[in-house]
Simulated assay, not measured.
Amino acid sequence: MRLLLIRHGQTPSNLKALLDTAEPGPGLTPLGEEQAAALPAALAGESIGALYASTLVRAQLTAAPLAAATGLEVRVRAGIRELAAGDLEMLGDEQSIETYLTTAFAWAKGETALRIPGGESGEEALARYDAVVAEAASTGADTVAMISHGAAIRTWAAARAGNVDAEFAARHSLGNTGVVTLSGHPDDWRVLRWESHDFGASGPTGETVGPGNG
Results as ranks from 00 to 15, higher is better:
Gly49Val: 07
His185Lys: 07
Phe199Met: 11
Ser96Asp: 05
Pro24Phe: 12
Leu66Thr: 10
Ala69Arg: 02
Tyr129Ala: 14
Gly119His: 03
Gly178Tyr: 00
Tyr129Arg: 05
Leu15Phe: 03
Ala85Thr: 05
Asp93Asn: 12
Ile153Leu: 08
Thr55Asp: 15
Met90Asp: 09
Thr155Ser: 09
Arg190Lys: 14
Ala104Trp: 03
Leu19Ser: 11
Pro26Val: 08
Gln60Tyr: 06
Val74Gln: 00
Gly119Val: 06
Glu33Ile: 10
Pro24Trp: 10
Ser54Tyr: 08
Leu66Val: 08
Gly206Val: 09
Leu61Gln: 15
Tyr100Met: 12
Glu124Phe: 06
Ala17Gln: 15
Trp194Ala: 10
Ser47Asp: 15
Leu182Lys: 01
Met1Val: 10
Gly27Leu: 10
Ser202Lys: 14
Val191Gln: 06
Thr55Pro: 00
Gly118Tyr: 11
Thr55Cys: 11
Leu126Tyr: 03
Glu123Pro: 05
Gly32Arg: 05
Leu19Asp: 10
Thr208Gln: 14
Gly71Val: 04
Arg7Gln: 10
Trp156His: 08
Ser196Leu: 13
Leu15Ser: 13
Arg81Glu: 12
Gly49Ser: 08
His185Ile: 00
Val133Asn: 03
Glu207Ile: 15
Pro24Tyr: 13
Glu46Thr: 10
Pro204Ile: 11
Thr70Phe: 00
Gln60Lys: 13
Thr102His: 08
Asn176Gly: 00
Leu5Ala: 09
Glu23Ser: 09
Ile116Glu: 04
Tyr100Ile: 01
Ala36Met: 07
Pro211Arg: 12
Leu88Thr: 00
Met90Val: 04
Ile153Gln: 04
Ala169Asn: 03
Ala158Leu: 05
Ser196Met: 14
Ile153Ser: 02
Ala136Arg: 14
Ala67His: 01
Asp93His: 09
Ser148Arg: 00
Ala108Tyr: 05
Arg2Pro: 00
Ala152Asp: 05
Arg190Gln: 14
Thr102Val: 12
Leu4Gly: 05
Arg193Phe: 05
Arg7Gly: 08
Ser202Glu: 15
Val191Ser: 07
Glu23Ile: 06
Phe168Cys: 02
Gly122Cys: 02
Trp194Phe: 12
Arg193Lys: 15
Ser96His: 05
Thr139Asn: 09
Val74Asp: 01
Glu82Gly: 02
Pro117Asn: 04
Arg81Gln: 12
Ala37Val: 05
Trp194Ile: 09
Leu31Arg: 15
Ser121Asp: 03
Ala152Met: 14
Gln35Tyr: 10
Gly140Lys: 06
